[in-house]
Every structure is written in C-alpha cells, then in structure tokens.
Design a protein around this nucleic acid. Structure first.
Length: 270
DNA sequence: AACAGACCCTGAGGGC
DNA sequence: TGCCCTCAGGGTCTGT
C-alpha cells in the first residue's frame, strides 16, 4: 500500500527510467482509471509527448510532459513496470508504448487514478492537488500548524492525521508508527492532544518518513524492467502488525479507528 | 460544517 | 478440492 515513502521511491525510479522517452501509442484496457478527460482525449493528448520529469506532492505523482501534466495516484496497489515484449498481465490497465519498451500501469484493485492537465494551468490550485495539504517535510508543518487545524477537531487523532488535507502522505501504517513514537492513544480526540504531543507528532513524522524513504519504502513491488523492488522498511516497523511492544513487552492491541485497522500499545500509548 | 458510513475492487484466508 | 463469505484499504461521495 503506497504511502509517501513508496510513492517517492517510485518517483525516483521513474525519473531514472522514463525521462526522454516519447509516447508513440497508448492502450487503455480499463477506462475508469482516467478521471477528468475522456479516454479518447487522454490518448490524443499524450501521443507524441515526451516524459520530461516526475515530481510528487503527497501521494500524487506528477509526470511532466511537453504540453501536459499527468497526475497519478497509486491508491492501494498501483504499480509501474517498464517492459519489453513480455506477455501482458490481466492487471496491466494502461500501457504507454515507447520505441524500444513500454511502461505499464498495473493495479490489482483498480483503485488508482490518473488526471490530465494542460500545462498552462497552475495544477496546484485545481482539484485534486488543491486538496493536498502540507507534507511533514514542509517547514510550515509545525506544532502550531497542527494546533490550529485540530483546535475544534473532535475526531480521533489517528483519523485527523490520515486526512490528506491536513497532512499529505501519511497512510495507515505510518500513522500507527507516528502515534506509537509519540506515545499517543489513537482514539484521543485531536483537540485534546497537547502541544508537546503535537511537537512529537511533527518530529516522529519526519523521522519515520525519512527512514522509510531511505530504505525504499515498506513493501512495494513497483518497478524496473520486471525486477521487483522490495522496500526494507517493514523490518523496522515498531507497532504496525506487531504483537509485542518493543518498549515494554506488552501485548499490542488491534482495534478499529475510523474504519481502519489500528495497532497500538495499551501501556505506552495513553 | 463536520462527521459517519457506503462505495470502488480483487485476492487472501477462514469455514465447511 | 472448492465454494462462499468476509475483510482490507485511500479517498470520494452521500447521507445525517
């Protein structure tokens, strides 16, 4: 499940492998991935466009081409593979054909999305990127920022931290890790989290995400001409999917918060 | 306005 | 062996 570190890993790999490649043809085998334009317009626009750069905001990949931006959200299981003549998988939904290879968007659960925009608009000011809040690495992401956002927020802190309009890039796994490192009970109302704890959230978010990026994400099969890249961060998880607390050896509890499976230590996280 | 729940979709895993 | 059921999950949409 791609979160910010996984998306960043995919971004870096894409930047090494598809820059300068020109799209000569596109096959679309599942239409619903394409969001804001018709399938015909999507194809017509992107043919003969060359990939110039791949950027990222939160969990969105921003592919820059000559005249367009292509936004990709991988959601749960979206992946890219750079391939040659290999047989297509039933989960390859969109194929960008280059002269000597092809880039396949593969997505088992079909939750991923693509948006296409002409370059003459400010994509950061239109949907969906205008709904993406600060990343934990942003210098404006501070305890004061969270205090302002949470002051009237009665939702559980876990749910509030998963809100991409407030914090961009944290998903279910990393929020559990952040709350564990900050010693905060996931169901605490966001407005009741004190300023010292908010400071810990800011600090922990940066530590967890940086570490995960450096290890190539959690477990992502994403890329590179049929080779899988397996992130190593899953070996570093402290609480998510764990049974015993690494701090106090208590049994880790699994509960539901806002409909999401949530792991926490009932002794360390009050 | 703010929040809860349904929904999208498939494969994995449990029960029988 | 195989069928049926339930569940997971990010983000959006709908309903309260």
């Amino acid at each position: 499940m791609p979160e910010l570190p996984e998306v960043e890993t995919v971004r870096r790999i894409l930047n090494k492998s598809i820059i300068g490649k020109k799209i000569l043809g596109i096959d679309i085998r599942y239409d619903k991935i394409i969001q804001n334009v018709s399938v015909e317009e999507f194809k017509k626009s992107l043919i003969n466009q060359t990939f110039i750069n791949v950027n990222r905001k939160g969990k969105y990949l921003i592919c820059e081409l000559n005249d367009y931006y292509l936004l990709v959200h991988l959601r749960m299981e979206g992946k890219f593979f750079l391939m040659h003549d290999e047989e297509l998988s039933k989960h390859d939904h969109i194929i960008f054909k280059f002269e000597d290879s092809n880039l396949r968007y593969n997505d088992t659960r079909k939750f991923g999305t693509m948006h296409l925009f002409k370059k003459d608009i400010d994509i950061y000011n239109v949907y969906p990127l205008n709904k993406v809040g600060l990343e934990p690495f942003d210098e404006k992401f501070t305890k004061e920022y969270l205090q302002e956002k949470f002051k009237n927020n009665t939702r559980p802190i876990k749910t509030a931290l998963l809100d991409q309009e407030i914090v961009a890039g944290l998903g279910n796994i990393y929020v559990d890790e952040v709350l564990f490192m900050s010693s905060i009970y996931p169901k605490t109302r966001a407005k009741d989290v004190n300023i010292e704890q908010l400071d810990k959230i800011v600090e922990s978010s940066r530590i967890v995400l940086n570490k995960a990026i450096n290890l190539g994400g959690t477990t992502i099969r994403s890329f590179q001409s049929s080779h899988d890249i397996t992130g190593r961060f899953q070996n570093e998880l402290l609480v998510h999917t764990k049974e015993i607390c690494p701090n106090c050896n208590s049994k880790i509890d699994k509960i539901k918060v806002g409909g999401r499976g949530t792991y926490y230590c009932p002794v360390c996280q009050k």
